[in-house]
């Protein structure tokens, strides 16, 4: 990180952000004690997925789009299945739908555990990484790795492998797991639940700056459950649309400094997505245990402090 000038007038430049998913650089200009400019430069080279999906069979997008991200491939697999099934008028329901959600939960467990323990938590201690954290607190890091491993195992049983599962197809699965394969995970999942409750208690004790912002939260919402893979898009300022209506309400702008497009709601502007948006819009649908762990951690039914995303993410593990 490069920082020039005094506290009131300075420029902060981070050429390559560490412990993030993907690649980015950050530029912050402070003048007279006021932040004048912030640029997040996603310099990840363009890969053109939208372009090379053209001319492919309708069966191929789940495998192709998975390669957008190796940390969250299931998100792309299920989204592309949803889109094609919607276009074909097919509804995947019942046990197949539950199984998809289970696979997605596996991805959440591994990705959230990775994020909480290996990417985010070291910052609160001033450590460079989770390996340094492990030198002083080996039991904590081992707990995180066990949680992550449980998520990966769930993905392997349902999806075939943890990175780029092979078992997801339009309409369902190639092969459903056997009852004994699934019941074999029960004990590990019970231990993972305990570990996730311990995770919430651990991160709730971190020091957080007192800082809240007036974001517009946008997330999925489903009538019957905490929305993960299915639902309509809602916000706390009145947005309520089907996924297919996205482009009527949201515009994407291409800025010079970044390869990632900037999305804004046409009438209002920038919005906020991710764990805190999901949590704040769907708190009532979290399990009673997750709600209780959130309350014990001092959270309300909404959280607008971005530094506390680690607590919210941990509650989603429960």
């Amino acid at each position: 990180m490069m920082s020039e000038g005094n506290v009131k007038n300075r420029t902060i430049k981070v050429d390559a952000l560490a412990r993030v998913e993907g690649e980015g650089a950050l530029y912050v200009k402070v003048s007279g004690g006021v932040v004048k400019d912030v640029r997040l430069d996603i310099y990840e080279p363009p890969r053109f997925f939208e372009a090379f999906l053209r001319g492919r069979s309708h069966k191929e997008p789940p495998d192709i789009t998975a390669r957008i991200c190796g940390i969250c491939p299931v998100a792309y697999q299920i989204s592309s299945c949803n889109a094609i099934e919607d276009a074909c008028g097919v509804k995947v329901d019942g046990q197949l739908r539950r199984l998809r959600r289970l696979l997605y939960c596996g991805e959440w467990i591994q990705s959230h555990a990775l994020h909480v323990y290996m990417l985010h938590a070291p910052d609160f201690f001033g450590y460079q990484d989770a390996l340094q954290l492990a030198k002083d607190h080996p039991e904590i890091v081992k707990r995180g790795l066990e949680l992550k491993k449980t998520g990966n195992e769930l993905m392997e049983v349902v999806g075939g492998r943890a990175v780029h599962p092979i078992n997801v197809r339009v309409g369902g699965f190639y092969r459903v797991p056997t009852e004994s394969q699934l019941s074999g995970l029960r004990d590990r999942l019970a231990r993972a639940l305990e570990a996730s409750l311990e995770t919430v208690r651990w991160v709730a004790g971190f020091d957080f700056p007192d800082f809240t912002q007036d974001y517009e939260f946008v997330a999925l919402r489903h009538p019957e459950e905490y929305a993960i893979e299915d639902g309509i898009l809602v916000s706390d300022r009145g947005l309520s649309i089907e996924a297919a209506e996205f482009e009527s309400h949201v515009e994407e702008e291409h800025v010079a400094h970044s390869n990632a497009l900037h999305a804004r709601i046409k009438e209002r502007g920038a919005y906020f997505v991710g764990p805190q948006a999901r949590y704040s819009l769907n708190f009532d649908q979290l399990s009673p245990l997750a709600q209780q762990s959130a309350r014990d951690a001092g959270l309300g039914s909404s959280c607008r402090n971005p530094f506390m995303s680690i607590v919210v993410r941990s509650v989603e593990l429960v």
Binding site: R19, D129, A130, L145, K148, K149, V163
Partner: peptide
């Protein structure tokens, strides 16, 4: 990520080698 997915091997491995540059895992 597959390297970080070596949940059982990662900590022993880090005792044998120095991770000198690995942005996804460390700012060092």
């Amino acid at each position: 990520l597959t390297l970080l997915d070596c949940e059982d091997e990662l900590l022993p491995l880090s005792e044998k080698i120095e991770i000198a540059y690995f942005l996804e895992a460390t700012r060092a």
